[in-house]
């Protein structure tokens, strides 16, 4: 199957999933006991105002009609108005999404680099102390919730050692670069505002690391297992009999096939990260989509909650398509479109 056909099929699937997700989210937010309009306006609001908002939100129509109105709005880029900030939800999301993406990308980089390096190290020193300590560390990484890591890092690096800041994206005195993508590091690089880049990176390290820990653990384990597995394969032995240097075997022949399971798991890890971002952003006071989502959930701000979840769904589905593409690149044996993905 050609790449374009595969991609189109994949996109259609993704749209189906997102439509399903929209129904699910819509149902979740509408089973809420109590009147959303009343919750939004508070107990003191006069009855007429509440009724007016009910009419605007179509709360008196049957569910399927409500869904229809809401969905047609979504297709026009209109997620409704946040019941709390009184701004269009889309504006809120545009403001907060880049911070979360920046954090998630940084965490992904940590995961990929540290996970693969540690896994490779462990595999290279199989059953020696390096291997054992990496595996023990990975175990701790998997069993520790991200919010515990966040708290430990804040305590250790923020307060005890005072190496890293524990709040926000930039220090108080640093001027933020002009907003282009919304990601401070990238904006700083584009505009040549390098002081901000350094400062932003410095702020990123702790939250990104807290988010990435579980992934690093997971990936180092999987990379280790897959390299160890591949090392026993015939082609490695054959290469050795031809006196191909060990380094070349490792980097040229072994690394690419060994990374396939690592990359596949990264898609799932990314989802985990988006989820745990809800807690980590709260702890680090990171002005991202997850903190916004968490706050909207706690305030029962329906329009915003549905929008945040849908946006996360879009991000996740996109990431998984990219992961599938990377896996297909790494492993030509995987014929695209045959039982892969979804």
């Amino acid at each position: 199957m050609k790449l374009s056909t595969w991609l189109i099929r994949r996109l259609i699937q993704a749209i189906g999933v997102l439509l399903g997700l929209s129904i699910l989210v819509f149902l979740i937010t509408r089973v809420m006991p109590g009147n959303p309009a009343r919750v939004a306006l508070g107990a003191r609001a006069p009855q007429e105002v509440v009724e007016e908002l009910e009419r605007r939100m179509h709360l008196n129509d049957p569910l399927y009609l409500q869904y229809y109105y809401w969905l047609s709005g979504v297709f026009h880029g209109d997620f409704g108005e946040s019941l709390f900030t009184r701004r269009p939800v889309l504006d809120d999301i545009k403001e907060y999404l880049p911070a979360t993406m920046e954090l998630a990308l940084m965490a992904l980089i940590f995961q990929a680099v540290l996970g693969v390096t540690l896994g490779g190290l462990a595999a290279g020193h199989e059953n020696r102390w390096v291997d054992h300590s990496v595996r023990l560390g990975a175990y701790l990484g998997i069993v520790t919730p991200s919010f515990v890591f966040a708290i430990v890092f804040v305590l250790l690096f923020g307060y005890a050692l005072r190496l890293f800041p524990t709040m926000g994206r930039l220090s108080a005195g640093v001027v933020a670069p002009r907003v282009i993508t919304g990601m401070t590091v990238i904006d700083g690089l584009i505009t040549g505002h390098f002081a901000a880049v350094g400062n932003a990176l410095w702020h990123l390290i702790l939250p990104a690391l807290s988010l990435a820990m579980a992934g690093i653990a997971q990936e180092s384990r999987i990379t280790r297992a897959s390299i160890v597995d591949n090392l026993r394969k015939d082609y490695v032995g054959l290469s050795r009999t031809f006196f191909i240097p060990e380094r070349k075997i490792l980097f040229k022949y072994l690394l690419k096939p060994s990374l396939i399971p690592t990359v596949s798991i990264m898609g799932l890890d990314f989802a985990c990260m988006l989820g745990h971002g809800f807690l980590v952003e709260l702890i680090f006071n990171w002005p991202g989509l997850s903190r916004y989502g968490m706050n909207t959930m706690l305030r029962k701000d329906l329009n915003a909650v549905t929008a945040v979840i849908l946006v996360l769904g879009v991000v996740f589905v996109t990431v998984n398509i990219i992961v599938d593409l990377v896996v297909a690149y790494l492993d030509p044996r995987i014929r695209m479109g045959t039982e892969r993905g979804t």
């Binding site: 999933v17 997700l21 989802a271 988006l274 989820g275 029962k300 979840i309 996740f316």
Partner: peptide
């Protein structure tokens, strides 16, 4: 597919928040 398209924690948070 729909249920696993969003992190479990996020949807669980959403459900909890409305209940």
């Amino acid at each position: 597919d729909v249920f696993v398209s969003v992190p479990a924690l996020v949807l669980a948070l959403a459900i909890c928040s409305v209940l």
